[in-house]
Amino acid sequence: MPKVTFREERCKACELCASVCPKKIITMAGHINEMGYHPATVKEQEKCTGCAMCALICPDLVIEVEKEEKAG
């Protein structure tokens, strides 16, 4: 299953990742990070397809995307 991880302390909550996510699973967390922003987070990780659109548009390199190796 693809996995997307957010480096919370770097997030400035611009919400661009949420605006491009085709599955609309990215939301802003209720808590705030050290910079005072509500960091982006993923609610339903299992719906992630690993398309990495969020990571492509993130200006602060908050997001890392991992995918399982294809068999063969």
């Binding site: 690993g50 990495a52 492509l56 390199l61 890392e64 995307v65 991992e66 995918k67 399982e68 190796e69």
Partner: peptide, 12 residues
């Protein structure tokens, strides 16, 4: 798991 997106090395 294979990283499909991570920070480039040329960026500190």
């Amino acid at each position: 798991m294979r990283k499909v997106f991570s920070r480039p090395e040329s960026l500190r």
